[in-house]
């Protein structure tokens, strides 16, 4: 192959982030915006994983027949992987909250177009009053 798999993987991460940014900034459909945000998160995670990769290395599990020195030289770097585990879960939970908000807002506006929901700000500004007891 022309480029090694680590570099190709970095390019994949960059492509995912750019696709996600494009979707989040320029698409009008809110669900697609949110799918784009999920891709940005995936790209960032893939980037971190790729940093820990070691070409020709082994998985970071210490088996009894390995020596400590050999393991230290050949294993991939596990710290980024531990971080990504957390980051994936955070991404999924943020996504869930956003989708729940979209469902509630759909009932109010009857549309999932960002220009309708998020652009409808200005005319509300004047009649911004509290709805009742608060909670």
């Amino acid at each position: 192959m022309i480029i090694d798999s680590q570099l190709a993987s970095f390019f994949t991460a960059a492509a995912l982030i750019i696709i996600g940014l494009y979707a989040a900034l320029f698409l009008d459909n809110i669900i697609k915006k949110i799918i784009g945000l999920a891709f940005i998160g995936d790209g960032a995670n893939l980037f971190i994983i790729t940093m820990g990769y070691k070409a020709g290395g082994i998985v970071y599990i210490f088996l009894p027949d390995m020596t400590v020195n050999w393991f230290a030289q050949n294993a991939s770097y596990p710290l980024p992987f531990a971080l990504v585990l957390t980051s994936i879960v955070i991404g999924a939970s943020t996504l869930a909250v956003m989708l729940a908000l979209v469902i509630v807002l759909y009932k109010k506006y009857g549309s999932i177009k960002a220009s309708k929901i998020l652009g409808a700000k200005q005319n509300q500004e004047t009649e911004n009053s509290i709805k009742g007891d608060g909670l």
Partner: peptide, 18 residues
């Protein structure tokens, strides 16, 4: 891809979540 990048535990999580 995570599996090929030597991160099997992340691959499991991503397989479920993603």
């Amino acid at each position: 891809l995570y599996q090929f990048l030597l991160a099997p535990d992340v691959a499991l999580t991503q397989a479920i979540v993603g």
